[in-house]
Structure formats: C-alpha cells, structure tokens
Amino acid sequence: MARPPILTRPEFEKTMQKLANVPLTLALIDLDNFKQLNDSLGHAAGDRVLRQVERLLSGSLPAGSHVARLGGDEYAVILPESAAETALILFDEIIKHFQINRDADWPRMLGLSVGLAGRPAHAKSSFDLQRAADEALLRAKREGRGRACIYVESKMVLKSNYYPKSQLERLAKLASALGRTEASLLRESLDDLIEKNRGAL
C-alpha cells in the first residue's frame, strides 16, 4: 500500500485548517543533535537519516494520519480522532524503534524528541494547539531528549489551596465528561468572570 506523501509546511497549515473542528492530537518532532551528525558525517548522511525518519513515521502511524516536514529536522504529525495518551504510547514505540535500528555510524546522542497536545483537552484553536505541542517538545528536550511528552498546563495555582475536596471532585468529573483539562475549565471560568465584571475594571 502506498504511503501518503510528506506534507510541506503550507500543506500542513491547510490540513490543520480543514480539520479545525475535528478532535485530534498534534505531535511536533525534532531530531536530537542532528547538527552533530551533519557536521561529522556530512549533509548526505543527514538526508538519509531524514528519509529514514519519514519512512518510520509514515509506516508506523494509523490510517488517516498526516506527516509534514516543517523545515530542517522538524516534523509534525496530525492524528485525527486520537487522544494524546494514545499518541504517547504510539510515539514511545516509534522512538524505541528508531533507537534500536540506528545505523552504527550515527552519533550516539542522535534521537527523537516529541511534544504532544490534544484538542479539545489542551487547546481549541490550531494556534494554541501548536503552542501547547511546542511547549511539550521543549519539556521533552529539558527532561533528557529521546522521549515523548504530553503538554502539561503550568502557571496554575494549586487548586487544593482554594477549593474544597467536593468541588475538586466535581471539577474532575466535569473535565472527564467534556474531554478537557481541569485547568482549561478553570481558566474559562476566570475569563467569564472578568468579562462579566468588565465595567468594574
């Protein structure tokens, strides 16, 4: 069966627009220490690595997925109707496969880092979804590279400081029912409160 073509960045943006109302997971992928490979083995070797990564992604992802090369050694994968937790398991397998089947002459530190974010759980708009996936990718890099990370909302005050346990339990049930994070629901409520009392500001 023929594999779908690797999308360009403009094609990726158009695909994201077409899927604007579809629940999906976005993965942003970056090759760790790719410059080191280019510097030591040359750009032809680097191109071979990129082709191998593209074959691995295209051959390992479920039907209906979209793979795009955003530029350099950066890729994006769109997984329609897929939860971030499901995508995490999938990309853990892809990363391990890449590590096990690496060429002997590749630098030891060459690997794949992946950032994952889901809609609607982590963001509604495509812009916010890409920002969340990028933050998850940066965390994967910070935590040692060669791994996949799901976006985790930060800068939220610890909820247990302000809310009784019964309310937190109801919040958790609501988040689960809506397929969203608790933090996003709290932020939405805060936005509504500010808008409702805009005249007092």
Rank of each mutant, 00 (worst) to 15 (best):
M1A: 15
P5K: 13
I6G: 03
P10G: 10
F12N: 08
E13G: 02
T15Y: 01
M16W: 00
K18R: 13
L19R: 06
P23C: 05
T25A: 03
T25Y: 01
A27P: 01
I29F: 02
D30W: 08
F34P: 01
K35L: 09
L37V: 01
N38K: 05
S40D: 12
S40Y: 07
L41V: 07
L41R: 14
A44Q: 10
G46H: 01
D47N: 14
D47P: 09
R48D: 15
V49E: 05
R51D: 09
Q52E: 14
Q52K: 12
E54R: 06
L57G: 00
L57D: 02
S58M: 15
S58T: 15
S60D: 07
L61S: 05
L61A: 03
P62N: 15
V67K: 03
A68C: 13
R69I: 13
R69P: 11
G71Y: 07
Y75V: 07
A76I: 02
S82N: 08
A84W: 04
E85T: 15
A87E: 01
I89A: 12
F91Q: 02
E93F: 09
H97P: 04
F98N: 03
N101K: 10
D103F: 07
P107T: 10
R108G: 04
M109Y: 07
G111R: 00
G111F: 01
V114I: 14
A117D: 00
P120R: 04
H122I: 03
A123T: 07
A123I: 06
F127S: 12
F127W: 09
D128N: 08
L129K: 03
R131F: 05
A132K: 01
D134A: 09
E135I: 05
L137V: 01
K141G: 13
R142D: 11
A148K: 00
C149I: 02
C149G: 02
V152H: 14
V152A: 14
S154G: 15
M156S: 12
M156Y: 09
V157Y: 07
Y162D: 10
P164H: 12
P164N: 12
L168R: 06
E169G: 00
R170I: 03
R170G: 00
A172S: 14
A172W: 02
L174A: 12
L178W: 07
L178I: 02
A183W: 06
L185H: 03
S189Y: 05
S189N: 09
K196F: 11
N197Y: 14
A200D: 12
